[in-house]
Amino acid sequence: MELSGITRTYDTGAVHVKALRGIDLTVEAGEFLAIMGPSGSGKSTLMNVLGCLDRPTSGRYLLDGIDVASLARSKLARVRNRTLGFVFQAFHLLPRTTARENVELPLLYREEELSWKEIHRRAARALDQVGLADRMDHTPNELSGGQKQRVAIARALVTEPRILLADEPTGNLDSRTSLEILALLQDLNEEGITILMVTHEPDVAAFTSRTVRLRDGLLRSDRRHDALAARTAISNWVDEDEDDAPHTDPTGPGPAAEAAGVDA
């Protein structure tokens, strides 16, 4: 992914809101990138542009060597379906629809049609990947918050995307569940999927290998750091927790953040 001089201006009547004012960013395959910034800094807009949900007002956005900034709406839909996976803060699962059917949804919009058998198989595999093989026939209201987000991740994974875009994936979850989700994302990253995650929590950003900060539509800082430390810390932490349940302090990945040494 290569962004150069990306701007995005919203035309709301008389006022021009410059949400992005020239972003240059290159993300290599296999990176785990956190996008941080205060509200109004343009991080959501950047995420929409990166996710091909929105087109930049100007600038070049190369995704796999293709300039997607100028593609038509239907072409963008194809790119989203084939290359990208989305995870949202609010999960966005279809109500009264089983986990399996929720996961199958993106496959229904595949350009090359798959057989129902193949669709079922892939959905089952994706759910297995997020550890929910036994919850396939549960509807969202029968699942906990963490399980819902896992279903959403499975839905993002089912198309075997190269890039996963996560918009505050832990924003609606408690710390314990957040840890599980972040660990899952790290696992996926290790398997080779590029992950871009918007967050405003430094603790969460600590699980990534690179953090960029936005302010007023411009990139202010770009740091690479060792995610492995955070990962080790978290696995120890989760292991410990499994050993001496019930666990007592679900308040946050404190040790992980320290180990990662992020400037919070």
């Binding site: 996710g51 949900l53 709406r73 239907s74 839909a77 194809r78 989203r80 379906n81 084939r82 989305f86 966005h92 279809l94 949804l105 993106p106 919009y109 595949r110 839905r155 198309t159």
Partner: peptide
Amino acid sequence: REVGLRLAVGARAPD
């Protein structure tokens, strides 16, 4: 929101 999600995961307007 359902429509938004469908569009996000790759549905085109005609779909």
